[in-house]
Design a binder for these strands. Structure first.
Lengths: 232, 232
DNA sequence: CGTCCCGTTGATCCCTATCAAATGTAGTGG
DNA sequence: CCACTACATTTGATAGGGATCAACGGGACG
């Protein structure tokens, strides 16, 4: 049975495939594999041989590095439309981190060996990937600056604001981060402990800046949280 | 008078230009500008419009971000052969950081608008740039992990080892970092203060791990410093 | 309905920033 | 060539932000 070709419209809007012709999109889609992930499933793990690269169709992933003594650091979040796991494209043979589903997710997977073929077919792909990686590099530098110079309170405020920006949905209470987040997660994103995050959120909740429940955070007053993030 | 074309051999060895034909190399060199920098000179400054991109011919640069309250964070060092300031290629209109010469340096500069032309001429350029940026992203993630989970002592040890790896020359005392480094510089690379760095270096000097003078550091016992960097 | 996971809150301690001051070193101009 | 100055480094004293240790409360899910 011939593989059913996914509809082009699924991926047409994605930055990575910008400017691709219909034919090229179809060519790319003939070899794609779609994979469903339950929360907690991993797409790949740190140190594993990089056999594939991916685009997130929907859902949410977190990418993390694990230290020798088992501490986890969340390196970034993957949102729908993002490429990830392009280790091969950047001359690595293994994945430098682990990608884990936070919510139920759908992932598009291609064999890493096809990357070169796709680029040959459509050189703009490398340009688009360069843009994506460049933006992430900039974000990484911003985090380095925060970790180096800012106190925990500001870092946590910034992390919340960033999540709201990338994955916030308006509710009557305010901006809800629309995927599950634990205190531990926020701690791993900001280089602190879940205890400190818990204390901060409790304090902010008392002041009416946020509202939080189990694995759920809503920012009720974005401006005042920004004021904390920007405090000089 | 026709501009004198620089010799191809100058840049042939650079990763960015890998796989380029002689003709393409010549084409690229016809529009290059060479710029000499004295220590302390900047190539570009944070926030400035990104009109050019660069390759370092020789010397050493540091790239830093400056916070609103004036603190500096060293984002990375530029070594000969590295591309830098490719803001435009990653869809930014301004430079996100400041690049300053640490030693006397020679820089090759091209108008940013030529980036697209060069890529059209030679698509491998985008692939090579992607590799370079990807590697930097990986380094940035490593630093994020260090800043999040490791104590100052290990971070400083790692920073020294990294400088030795990238710019170390063997001397009779050990591995000398072959560009001027102050305590302040190391502090800005590791998210600590010059006082703490000074205390650490003094301690290590007493134990015979390093030897340091004004703006100069030599690692005399790489293995024992590695042990500190790796301590679990 | 018990168990696991997540969150809260208190008490304590220590790493490292901060404050302060002195010493050393290179460079400069008279 | 020396006095003067600017910068780099060292070292001590102190304080405080957060990590760590500890214990408990509460909701979700099998």
């Amino acid at each position: 049975m011939a593989p059913r070709i996914l509809d082009r419209s699924l991926i047409r809007g994605f930055e990575l495939f910008r400017d691709m012709t219909e034919d090229n999109l179809d060519a790319v889609l003939t070899t794609v594999q779609v994979r469903r992930l339950a929360p907690g499933d991993t797409v790949f793990e740190q140190g594993e041989a990089a056999r594939e690269f991916f685009v997130l169709l929907n859902g949410h992933l977190k990418v993390m590095q694990i230290t020798k003594d088992g501490q986890q650091v969340v390196v970034r979040h993957v949102h729908p439309g993002d490429v990830f796991g392009i280790a091969k494209a950047i001359k690595r043979n293994d994945y430098p981190a682990t990608a884990e589903a936070v919510t139920e997710s759908l992932v598009l997977a291609w064999s890493a060996s096809q990357w070169q073929d796709f680029v040959a077919l459509n050189p703009a792909l490398a340009v688009n990937a360069l843009e994506a990686v460049g933006e992430r590099l900039h974000e990484a530098h911003t985090r380095i600056r925060e970790l180096s110079t800012e106190e925990v309170e500001r870092r946590v405020a910034n992390a919340l604001l960033r999540m709201v920006r990338k994955a916030g949905t308006a509710t009557e209470d305010g901006m809800l981060i629309d995927f599950p987040v634990t205190r531990q997660d926020i701690a791993e994103m900001t280089g602190t402990t879940l205890h400190t995050v818990s204390r901060l959120l409790s304090g902010w909740q008392d002041q009416g800046l946020v509202k939080s429940a189990r694995r759920k955070v809503t920012v009720t007053n974005v401006d005042r949280l920004k004021a904390i993030a920007d405090q000089t």
